Structures are given as C-alpha cells and as structure tokens.
Simulated scan of single mutants.
Amino acid sequence: MTEERIAKGPRHVLLRYLSRTLISRTVMCCGILIALMEILALLEQMTPILKRHLGIKGVLTYMGLHLPAMLQTALPLSVLIAGLLMFTQMTISSEIAILRAAGLSPWGFLRKLLPSAILIGLFGCVLEDQITPRSELALASWWNRTNPTPANGKAFWFHVPGGVAQACMGPATGLPPTDSELAHVGYIARSGREAFNVDLYDRSGDGRILRTLHADHAVYSYSGWHLSDIHCVTVSFAELDTTANESTVLDALWKNPFGPNDMLRLSMDAAPLSSGMILDALHGKIATNQTPGYLRAALFERFLRPLALIVMLLLAMPVIYIPPRTGLRSWLPVWCLGAGLLFIIVQGMFRAMGNAGLLPAPVATVPGLIIFALAAGTALLRNEDK
C-alpha cells in the first residue's frame, strides 16, 4: 500500500501545483476587483447611508450584504486574469518549456487545470443560486426598513393569480371571481409589510375590466393582506350599455398569495432568484417582474457557469506560446484579455436577446460558449503546428 502511494504521489504533484496556483491567483484577482467595485458602490451610496444616520455600522452592513453579488460578477473576469498571470509567469520562467520538453501537450496542460476550474465554477453556481438571492433580499429589506422617506420608493406592477379583494365581491355585484388580477403598488415600507397606493384591476377572460379598486394602505399579517380606505368601482356590461357602480369601504381582505419578501423582490430592478424560485416563478407560484425568457436563460446560464470558466481558461492559454526572450514585451496577453472581454460582451448580447424573447433560452446561452471555445482551440492548434 505504501509503495502504491509513493508511485501515485508524483503524478498529482503537477495537478496540485497548478490547481493551487490558479485558485490563489483567482482569489487575489477577486479581492482586487471587489475592492474597486465596493469603492465605486460606496461613492454612490455613502450619502444616503449618512443621511439615514446609519454610521460606520451601516457602511459595513451595506458592504457585507452586497459582497456576494459583487463576487458573483467578478468571478469570470478574475479567472481570466488569473489564468493570464499564471500562464505568463510560467512562460517567462521557462516552466512551460520544461513541461513541454517532458511531453506535456497543451491539452494535457488544460486537463490538469479542469478540476480547479470546475471547482471554482461550482462555487460560482452555489454562490449565485443560494447565497446571492438571500443576501440581496436581506439588503433590500434593510434598505427599505431604514428608509426615512419610503414614499420615494419604486412603484411596480404584477399579476396576482386569483387575487380578489372581498370588498368588491358579494351578491350585489353579480360578478364571479376572476382567475387573475393586475395590481399596481405605489411604494412599500417596513421591509415589504406595508404597501401604499394599491390599485387592483380585475379583468374578464377577453380582457375587459370588471372591477377596479384603490386602497390607500395595505398591511400584511398572518391572515393575509388587509386593505383600508378603499374606493371600488364595479363595471356591468349589458347588450347595448355599460354602467359603473362606485362604492367606498373602510377595510377588506385581499386574497393575495404573495408576502412581504415577494413585494421586496418586485420593488427591486432585477432581483436574483434561486433555481427553485425560478421554477416557481415560471409556474406562477411566486411573484416576479421578469419575463419567462429571462428566467429560463438565467437558469441555463447558471448551470453552464463551469463551462464558461473553462472557456475563459482556453482563451488565456495562447499565452503559453510567448517566446521566453520576448517576455512582457509581447502583446499576446493583451489580445487574450481582449478576447475574454469580447466573450463576456457577446454572452451579454445573446442573453439580452433571450431576455427579450427573441431567442429561446438554450440559443441565448450555449452558442457563445461553443463559438469562443472553437476559436480558442483553433488558435492553440495553429500555434502547435508552427
């Protein structure tokens, strides 16, 4: 048993060395990029934090809760820069030449880097799927709770499946409940537990307005949402005439399956969602202001994260062909960095078309990976034949 371990030990020395080097360089690049991003974010948010009298604790809270989202954004570019730094250093110090002389091909070199790239990619998946949605929701809750002027918050629309205020129901109306309701909220307060200037629109199957309701205030409790100061208008359609009946009610129960967390997500520009939440949103179980195309593309992109990082390493690998005497005077690392940035831009363009519904989710996420992987592989083969 001891002899087998000794025999197998040297085989993994290079794997451990390359993995440790790539991961350490990635952590260093992530730290630098996140520090720059945090400084830029604080330049924008420092004034609101100080106006709310949150002090240094508020600054640290904002930085800590926003850290996972920044790490998620910085990870792909960090892997690219880390690969460029590692390959350039190994080329200049003749380590690549020694490995090539020992019989290690570029593809064998890439295979040694795959475990660390997949490990970083899986960490990115967990970060994006589980940590970032929770941290961003906690940040939105804290930001809304400490806002002294919630009336300046963002208004938003959403569909409520089967959501009908009981104030407009009853025998007097002669109208059955609708399958869905369109809701507009002026702003929210107390971490989404209060909503103001609520407008509800019940529509028939052919799109006609059946009821409209305006409530000045809505409060969430364990029994659901309670509306107060309600003004309700019920529309009746006859064969040749349409009439509207107005009524005023002090309070009513709103059959809304969405809670305070859903209100917080709707008030955000682009709330990150976990995979389970995306599937629930596609089935109408949770509220979201994103299109189905956006949700499907986000789900595909999330689980393709390890492949995207492998493509980043492929784009950085042509650096190993820099002549050792040329050293840092070579422009090849700059061209590789430009190719990686172009990959990020092209992926963003495909993703934007997927969000707009112009492309299905697989077409909005996979082609960019294939195109740039083939381009990087072609560059490696051409340099190998020289």
Rank of each mutant, 00 (worst) to 15 (best):
G293H: 10
R302W: 03
P272N: 04
F258T: 06
R296G: 06
N289D: 15
A271W: 00
V249F: 13
G259R: 07
P272F: 00
I286T: 15
R296T: 04
W254I: 12
L266W: 02
N261I: 09
F303I: 14
M277D: 12
T288W: 00
D280P: 01
I278Y: 02
S275F: 06
A271G: 08
S274A: 11
F258L: 04
R305Y: 03
T291M: 02
N256S: 12
L279M: 10
L250G: 12
S267T: 08
M277E: 15
D251M: 05
A297V: 03
S274F: 01
A298T: 10
M268I: 08
A297H: 02
R296K: 10
N261K: 10
S275H: 05
L299M: 15
D251L: 01
D262W: 03
S267I: 04
L304T: 11
R296S: 12
L266H: 03
I286V: 15
R302T: 12
K285D: 09
Q290E: 15
P257W: 01
M277H: 09
I278W: 01
Y294S: 13
Q290H: 11
R265N: 07
M268Y: 00
H283E: 09
R296D: 06
E301L: 15
N261M: 08
G259Q: 05
L273M: 11
S274I: 00
I286M: 14
D280L: 01
N256A: 10
R302A: 05
L295F: 04
R302E: 11
A271S: 13
K285R: 15
N261A: 10
N289I: 08
H283Q: 14
W254C: 10
A298L: 00
V249S: 04
E301A: 15
N289K: 10
G259F: 03
F300T: 05
W254N: 06
G276S: 10
H283I: 00
N289V: 11
A270Q: 09
G276M: 05
P292Q: 09
L273V: 10
M263G: 06
A298I: 00
I278F: 03
H283G: 10
L264D: 06
A281H: 02
F303P: 09
T248N: 06
A298H: 00
M268F: 01
S267P: 05
M263P: 02
R305G: 14
A281Y: 01
D262V: 13
R296V: 08
I278L: 11
F258G: 07
S267Y: 03
D251W: 02
L279S: 10
T291I: 01
N261Y: 03
P257T: 08
A281F: 05
T291D: 07
P292E: 06
A297L: 04
Y294V: 09
R265W: 01
M268N: 10
P257Q: 04
D251K: 00
M268Q: 12
P292K: 05
N261R: 07
E301Q: 14
K285L: 13
P306S: 08
E301C: 12
F303S: 00
G284E: 14
